[in-house]
Nucleic acid binder design. Structure first.
Lengths: 231, 231
DNA sequence: GCGAGGCCGCGTACGCCGTACGCATCGACG
DNA sequence: CGTCGATGCGTACGGCGTACGCGGCCTCGC
């Protein structure tokens, strides 16, 4: 019954260990399978022991999101002269990778990028500063950065929802858009039914393509706004 | 013990009644308080009775989302010559209103607009067709429509998450961005700290403003793409 | 008029969940 | 060596989704 008996390594229970274990569970089995008992079991520990280090499950979720954010940092300390388009590219790539690897983050109330702790403020500062090159003021530049975050979050939400639906209920799947593209037409969409004629329509159901297209539109919009402001 | 005794009106239990009651509960007390027992209580009925009409809670959530979608229809049958910008405006307004009135829809796995049942296909058809005026092909036009949906969904997600966090845990609220704008600077964001100097920065934490700004950028981007394709 | 059969509401029960509470143990320190 | 705070844990409570089977009612064929 010595403290080192029960667990395998006998290491002290810490917030970091709990967060790591919780992230591992959420990644492996989905956020639906994340329970305090399950985390405790994985750590070889009683369920109630977790509450010595975490206020409640919600606080744990918050800690998990912030830890994930820390694992996918922006290059804020790289002093190269990044153009605003380069910053957008790197932000989109990093955040998308984050959501792909840890889909539960999208649903964990707020994304790490929107939690606005110190870390995300630093990220936002670096990201927004890039848009100043467009000749817009600081408020508009910050708005542009937030808009990009929002867009990535939105596309990830749709992609994750689709995955969740398909993973938990493989039976049901009347995906009308895929049906339309595949030629199983419903003839209730006069224009869209022509989509089955072209292979390029596959792009419409590819989340990463949706993401990139949306970002391209946004960047064109940013640039137009910059010129309007007297480039 | 006659069938009319228990309930108030003695009406037969139907899927529609269950969906309506569930929507009422979710609107009033949030999706976290939505339980089969709670719905049944509101209907004056046993919990297990619901399962005669609904496969499980997930299916009920799906039905609820689709019903909400039906309550916020697009003007697909209005044969006025809508410009694409008018269509964007009306779509954004309708969907935003939908998410404001029924925030739980944002989190209900898939939004009604992305479920791609017959109804949403009709909506997409009408919406996407508008972009053909830009001279782009059907795939790109549909992509533009999906991008708008995605963006509204993303902004709504952030707004709803904020509301949920503030509603369920009024204690915690270190909103770094609001702090920065309010002048409670953290001096870890060299550029952003200047935001406290201007009143226009309030726009950055107003969800509807975030929505409209993002849509404006997207529309400018759509127009640029249209011109590039040889308007 | 009446029996049969199907539909429907319901009661019970099982195995999960988050977590309040209090006890037992242990390390550090005087 | 005595004390005390920190820490791990066992028990228990209320709530969840829902599997399963019973009993009462409505309808229909005769």
């Amino acid at each position: 019954m010595a403290p080192a008996d029960r667990g395998s390594a006998g290491l002290r229970l810490t917030l970091e260990a709990i967060v790591d274990a919780a992230i591992a569970v959420a990644d492996r089995d989905g956020i639906g399978a994340l329970s305090m008992r399950r985390i405790a079991d994985d750590l070889g520990v009683g369920a109630m022991s977790l509450y010595r280090h975490v206020d409640d499950k919600d606080a744990l979720l918050q800690e998990m999101s912030e830890e994930i954010g820390r694992r996918f940092p922006y290059p804020v300390t790289d002093t190269r002269p990044w153009t605003w388009r380069e910053r957008v590219q790197v932000v989109v790539d990093i955040d998308w990778e984050l959501y792909q690897r840890h889909p539960w983050v999208v649903l964990a109330y707020s994304s790490p990028r929107h939690s606005f702790g110190d870390e995300s403020l630093r990220c936002l500062d670096w990201f927004a500063a890039g848009f100043l090159d467009l000749g817009v003021d600081l408020v508009e530049a910050t708005g542009m950065a937030l808009t990009v975050w929002s867009h990535v979050h939105g596309v990830a939400l749709v992609a994750v929802s689709d995955d969740l639906l398909r993973a938990e209920k493989p039976s049901e799947g009347p995906d009308g858009l895929a049906d339309l593209i595949g030629g199983r037409s419903k003839d209730l969409a006069p224009h869209l039914s022509a989509l089955s004629q072209t292979t390029a329509a596959a792009r419409l159901v590819d989340p990463r393509a949706r993401l990139d297209d949306g970002i391209a539109y946004l960047c064109d919009g940013f640039e137009a706004r910059g010129h309007a402001n007297g480039d």
